[in-house]
Write a protein that binds this DNA or RNA. Structure first.
Lengths: 154, 154
DNA sequence: GTAGGACTTCAAGTTAAGTTTAAGTCAAGA
DNA sequence: TCTTGACTTAAACTTAACTTGAAGTCCTAC
């Protein structure tokens, strides 16, 4: 493939550092949506390099594929995204990023306040009353979580 | 159970907000190591509340169970940990915590430098050359990762 | 002493994010 | 034209962190 702006899955893999199986998987999750040629093979656009780059970066920050797909879905459908489309997406992304970092810092400072005593007591340190109980890293099934009332403990 | 410092699994569940199945699971991972009574039922110590609290807090920061178990393994075996044992553990923990937060902030500032252009280009933005490519959130199998050389892209 | 809830083990199911394998089809250069 | 590497799908496997269910045992209060 060298017809200007069109890439095979292998070429896209080379340019992003992903495996072809990962790219196919991302397709099932809506990160990219390639066309097909006459023979049924995937044909990607140059813009897909950027979509995958965004996904890789966002993953480094702990975002799930679903969250990333939702962000990418705000890019204009039909036409190739232009510079200001990407800037808008980046701005949006940065807001969510800042929230995550701020949350980590709040957790840390709550912990700091509690380090002197070394207690790590759920009630006394109130790390769980920090109002922040959402578990952001989607780690397997943990359905009901954190709505018990804590009484005193050692 | 009300014999002072000894707890059944149900009581421990009530005090930590965990389910009994989660506590049994954590036992298989070495987070707690309860004794057994004559009938074969688990009997926990008060200190186990603190071990589980530590695990919950560390999980909020994105640590894996394995990492948490490793930290807890540094508590003195045999005797119940005292205040300075917990303080030492907390100090250790804070170091690792600070590293994680610092890494997020480094990633963010690299991204910031790249937001003006909105490019998200792997080569130009060099988010992947930041020297930080470890993927800290152990998310499924991703065996080989990021040792391709990137050439120029759009 | 017995009913019932709390406890036991073990196996199988769940989600996320991919990989691996098998069996077959497509495409591009010699 | 043919061969060979790149591509296709589908199903099964992997790890982390648990949950759910089945089938049976323990304990405690009445």
């Amino acid at each position: 493939m060298d017809h200007a702006n069109i890439l095979t899955i292998g070429e896209l893999a080379d340019r992003t550092g992903l495996t072809t199986s990962a790219i196919r998987f991302y397709e099932t999750k809506g990160i990219v949506t390639p066309n097909r040629n006459a023979g049924g093979q995937r044909r990607f656009m140059r813009a897909d390099i950027r979509r995958l780059s965004f996904a890789l970066i966002a993953q480094e920050f702990g975002f799930t594929i679903k969250e990333i797909a939702d962000q990418l879905a705000t890019l204009p459908p039909g036409r190739a995204p232009n510079k200001s489309d990407w800037q808008r997406l980046s701005q949006q992304f940065k807001v969510q990023l800042d929230e995550r970092i701020a949350r980590m810092e709040r957790l840390r400072s709550t912990l700091d306040g509690c380090m002197g005593c070394g207690c790590l007591s759920l009630t006394k340190c109130s790390l769980y009353n920090a109002g922040d109980a959402a578990n952001i890293y989607g780690r397997g099934p943990r359905f009901i979580y954190g709505d018990k009332s804590f009484s005193e403990e050692s």
